[in-house]
Amino acid sequence: MAFWDNPRHGGNSFNRLPPDQAYFDALSGYGATWVRLSYDKWQPAQRDFLLGDADDYQGLPAGDLAILRATLDRAHQAGLKVVIAPLSLPGMRWSQNNQGQFDDRLWQDKRYWRQAEAFWRDVARELKDHPAIAAYNLINEPAPEKQGGLAEHAETVQMQQWYAREQGGARDLPALYRQLIAAIREEDADTPIMVDAGWFAAADAFGYWPAPLEDQRVLYSVHMYEPYVATSAPNMTRKQPIAYPGPVAFAGQIQQWDGQRVERYLQLPLAWIAAMNLPRSRLVVGEFGCMRRLPGCKQYLEDVLSVLDRNQLHWAFYSFREDNWDGMDYELGSAKVPWRYWQAIEENAPDPLPRNGTPEFEPIRKRLNPD
């Protein structure tokens, strides 16, 4: 847990191929100290990588586990710590591996909770002694609220009323986390555990939690893409993309979003951490980013990072050299990628594009290595 006592800065790896040594060396070379690693896009031995089958978990496929271990070895060789971040659990298959459909089963039926316990118990048993592991991120961007009757970015009082109704049921996210943590602790007493807030890890979604989790080795994670209608891929398909800074639709109204609004929004998880009597070193911004081709993206990154660093928070930018989506790969600058990038995806070949310093990447680069 001592690794997390000081602010740690890194990147997200959501690649379609297990990253090679050069990938991890490059991230470390920028000054990053950790990587948040997802494996769900890798070629699985069965239906779902490492899970086998998210419909019915029966154990860790040996081949998948070997690929993950070898990847962890490469990260360790580069001097990086790793946070494992699955995008799927039993009963909650990641939508991009599920024909684009949101999978709500985990939030309806607790038999999937038991399968998720078995999965994390097995992962902890297998990986607890690996020197690269810095935390287990139990599930990326859970959203039990999405089909449960709670509006996104609802007022805190509304969130609390919703949780009072759902507490003890299958949509009780803190309760699921308690069960998964208990399963992990049967095998691994020491490794820190990272938990995302609900509503896709929204920075305001810890607001309904009445208490922190009992385990003393927990990190609380939020993601920052707000205002999403401006920072996300759909905005780039508009004839005239919504600008940042500027007036943006958020929580059912038009608001001016700029550096000050970003700061006010990010005060919400800081206020929750303080109210729970937890140190700020327990709060992580596990993802943040914007579409690199949006003219205001560099300013957005600067505004977000200014708040994070002023408050000495851990962070990981999204994303580092993603080999199947270029939208938030800031080293590519603001130009379109050439055809050979997409051809490599079709051929399942390594990403062929060179990367270098760009103005779009500068807000991140200068903070990864301030010297």
Rank of each mutant, 00 (worst) to 15 (best):
M1S: 14
N6W: 05
P7K: 07
H9S: 12
H9E: 10
N15D: 15
Y23M: 06
Y23R: 06
W34T: 08
V35K: 04
L37N: 13
S38T: 12
Q46L: 15
D53H: 04
D55G: 15
D56G: 12
G59K: 09
G59M: 13
P61D: 13
A66Q: 14
A66C: 02
I67A: 13
L68I: 05
R69T: 11
A70W: 10
R74L: 12
Q77P: 00
A78L: 06
G79T: 11
L80N: 12
L89P: 05
R93Q: 14
W94Y: 15
Q96A: 13
Q99F: 05
G100Y: 10
G100N: 09
R105C: 06
W107N: 08
Q108W: 07
R111Y: 00
W113H: 12
W113P: 01
E117F: 03
F119R: 08
D122I: 03
V123N: 13
I133L: 15
A135H: 04
L138T: 08
K146V: 06
L150D: 14
A151T: 07
H153S: 06
T156H: 12
M159D: 15
A164G: 09
G169T: 10
Q179S: 09
I184M: 14
E187M: 11
D196M: 04
G198K: 02
W199K: 07
A202G: 15
G207M: 09
H223Q: 11
E226M: 08
A233L: 11
R238N: 12
Q240G: 00
G246I: 04
P247N: 04
F250G: 01
F250H: 08
Q256P: 00
W257S: 05
Q267I: 00
A274I: 00
A275F: 02
M276L: 05
L278F: 02
L278W: 02
R280G: 11
R280T: 08
R282M: 02
L283V: 07
E287V: 02
E287Y: 01
R293D: 13
L294A: 12
D303L: 04
R310L: 06
Y318A: 02
S319R: 01
M328K: 03
M328G: 00
Y330E: 10
Y330L: 10
L332S: 03
A335I: 00
V337N: 03
Q343C: 05
I345P: 03
E346N: 10
P350T: 07
D351M: 11
P352H: 05
P352R: 01
N356H: 09
N356V: 01
G357I: 05
P363Y: 09
R365N: 07
R367N: 02
